[in-house]
Nucleic acid binder design. Sequence first.
RNA 1: GUGCCUAUGGUGUAAUGGUUAGCACGGGGGUUUGUGGAGCCCCCAGUCCCGGUUCAAAUCCGGGUAGGCACCCCA
Length: 439
Amino acid sequence: MKQREKLSKESYKGTRDFYPEDMAVRKYIFSTMRKAVEKFGYVEYDASMIEETGLYRAKSGEEIVNEQTYSFKDRGGRDVTIRPEMTPTVARMIAKKRKELSFPLRWYSIPNLFRYERPQKGRLREHWQLNVDMFGVDSISADVEMIAVPYAIMNEFGAQNDQFVIKVNDRRITNFFLSEYLGMNETEAHDLSKLIDKKEKMPEGEFFLSAQEILGEQTEKFVAFLNIKDITALPEEFSGYETVKSLAEIIDSLADRGITNVVYDPSIMRGFDYYTGVVFEVFDTSSENNRSMFGGGRYDDLVGIFDVEKVSAIGFGAGDVIILDFLKTHNLIPGKILSVVDLCLCVFEKKYERVAQELADHLRKEGLNVSVDISERKIASQIKTADKQDVKYIICIGEDEVQTGKYKLKDMDSREEKEVAKEEIVRNMEVNNEQTRKL
RNA sequence: GUGCCUAUGGUGUAAUGGUUAGCACGGGGGUUUGUGGAGCCCCCAGUCCCGGUUCAAAUCCGGGUAGGCACCCCA
């Protein structure tokens, strides 16, 4: 006989099992996100996890496709990739129905995404990412809204203004600065923007030296530019000043709406090349989480790669892993999430189980989520189990109940009992079984 | 892919190189064949793997494996 290979009980590297208590938290996070974005009129879409690899090759860096994705050949020989991000998919969907969709469109989705890399804090191999996008409007109003939505989501989670900061920039400003003000060629500008991306992680001296290799004596000017935190302090000399003015206007409009934790930060560039204008990221102000929670920007040319007429677009993504870290850090997860089971029926003896099942069926028709304890264990154990599972109400059924037709509805929190007839049970309960609830 | 750190019942932890590897939570049962969620009692279950040093290894060393964190990259 072959020796059986020892099976691991661990979930696959970088992925999570969602036990019911974890799933309750996930449902809370997702429903909070949905609630917030739907208030702005966004509608939900979805697509398959799997796409042809070419979709990503067309717009991403080669490395992402080759080294950081789950890519393989299907049985028909097609190169396919498990989606590492949602934006190419939604751009494809928009392009496909370009002619029949009426713009502007407000769409969102909460897809699970995969990347092949070593897991670390805030980054796993599988995560869920809220994606919110608006298509067909290229205006300051659209930009303002797309930054106001993350703010609204944070609000919905109960976050205060001082717990997170929204950093905004416009790629064109940085590009103008590099190419026209400093006179960098394309390669130099590209290298510098990659360097800017890394700035926060490098010691200051090292950053200066790396910059000096490209810029020589202009390094001082460059560093001074990056340290500007007030948009109005930007030099007026270089062209593209219109862009500076619109970004200032965006920041002002946000402030008018009470969104005051927005700062201009020229070092926000975002990794992907497809961004064409405004870019932004939302950070936790606590030093515990140094990764950005939301990131997005304007990408007016992406839909166009499908050979259709250009559709301007702006959107952002927000990963569940880092948001969960944020909520934990700031104590924003509801303390107790009740079970979706409204009522548990415990039975004193096996022979009363039939009565319990009939009662359960009756109550289910009235809209309750009811479970019947069929363990045949003693009543104390049944109650204990219901308690452990955070079920709010129980009814114990035995000879008395069968004789009188009255049931003792017990509230597990207050420990109070109310004797009621079958028909009165529902109206004596506080029920909200549509989704996860806070207490 | 690179570096650093960690590894004891299911979980969280304790144990100067020297007792039968201790405690708490958890799970099962009893106390109690109907008013119970407490208490008390009993039970379940562990030194990641392979090798080395030593009279003696959970403990020290080497190599694996797994996990965490950081880098790389960033969706």
